[in-house]
Nucleic acid binder design. Structure first.
Lengths: 202, 202
DNA sequence: GTCTATAAGCGGATAGAC
DNA sequence: GTCTATCCGCTTATAGAC
């Protein structure tokens, strides 16, 4: 299926990212070869190097772009305009929806950190730190206003993020529970865990 | 540093497990070579095959033994003798302590599932299912007795396990919080998240 | 932009000496 | 039980033709 004539750089670039993301998530970065990515894209291995100088860069780009998009999407919600409780609920819904829609991005962003070289690792960690800070800001506001009963903002933030992100490990679109039901259950769970007053309807 | 004479099978077996566990956790199964394990153990690569028929078996054994030990340790606590609330608190303490003491075991048991061949995968999953069932049993008891306010036992169990296991990703022995302080925070967090009445002192 | 060909080395695993 | 030597396939990455 070689298609040297009629080749299309933009389409190939898109396909490489798509295939690499899928394979890295499925098998892990170290277990996927450039040949395998190329085969699935429908080009020869050498062609991949027109789009990334090496395999490491391909991984790093996928992770950094994901984290940047996540941060932008959350910022676009303007959560600072909401009350702490509403902002927390908005965060729960946002996080679940964004992550359930992109399970492969989530998976590699948590699993492949150790395969990043130092410089790329630092970039991704900084972006993750910013995202954690967004949740901490909400918890802090609610804590100061005595709306929440939180023993430690940092630990609570880590715990909430872990449980929300964990949804992607077991959620199946055709499972027992609909996504909206899961969102409802987690909203209750998180509100209860921060000791918020029984919530008005979501 | 060859030591053919004076070689000691039992000691080597122990060291192989120790080194393989450490390296798999650090770099991931696929990124660690048998040669690298051998080098760190202080033997030649061929010698490893006296202890495992292949690399896959080495990984599977580490994971299965960890899950079996985890289950035995929990069973030894006889949680069914406790009230649901006390059992839940016991579970939180047990899980945090057991996992914080064995971060590498925990890490590979969650991260390397995808590198297990079908048969080994099934074994590990069955053991994990049993452990999840132990927590669900507590939640069910408390729910039936109207001690807990739980929207869905399965989702709540997954959420609690995710947040507890997540401790190992950020806990550092010399960090801001002592382990006992973290245990206290998580106990409150989990009790609040299941809607349990404000707890007596732990 | 993609191909073919190839460099240079590492991978898991085995055979047979000691 | 461990070593040395080895098979051979697969790895990332590059060079140069088209």
């Amino acid at each position: 299926m070689a298609r040297t004539t009629g080749s299309n750089g933009e389409e190939t670039a898109r396909r490489i990212d798509e295939v690499a993301l899928k394979l890295f998530a499925q098998k892990g970065y170290a277990a996927v070869s450039m040949r395998e990515i190329a085969r699935e894209v429908g080009v020869q291995a050498g062609a991949l190097y027109n789009y990334s100088p090496n395999k490491q860069d391909l991984l790093a780009r996928l992770m950094i772009e994901h984290m940047e998009a996540l941060l932008s999407a959350w910022d676009a919600q303007n959560p600072s305009l909401l009350s702490p409780l509403d902002a927390l609920k908005a965060f729960v819904l946002f996080h679940i929806r964004y992550h359930v829609e992109r399970p492969d991005h989530v998976f590699i962003s948590y699993m492949e950190l150790r395969n990043l070289e130092a410089e790329n690792f630092a970039k991704v960690e900084e972006l993750r730190r910013q995202y954690e800070a967004a949740l901490k800001a909400i918890l802090k506001r609610g804590s100061i206003d005595h709306l929440f009963n939180i023993a430690d903002v940092h630990v609570t933030a880590m715990a909430i993020l872990a449980q929300l992100t964990g949804v992607t490990t077991w959620y199946r679109a055709k499972g027992r529970l609909s996504q909206s039901k899961i969102e409802e259950i987690y909203t209750q769970l998180v509100c209860q865990s921060v000791g918020a007053q029984p919530s008005e309807e979501v």
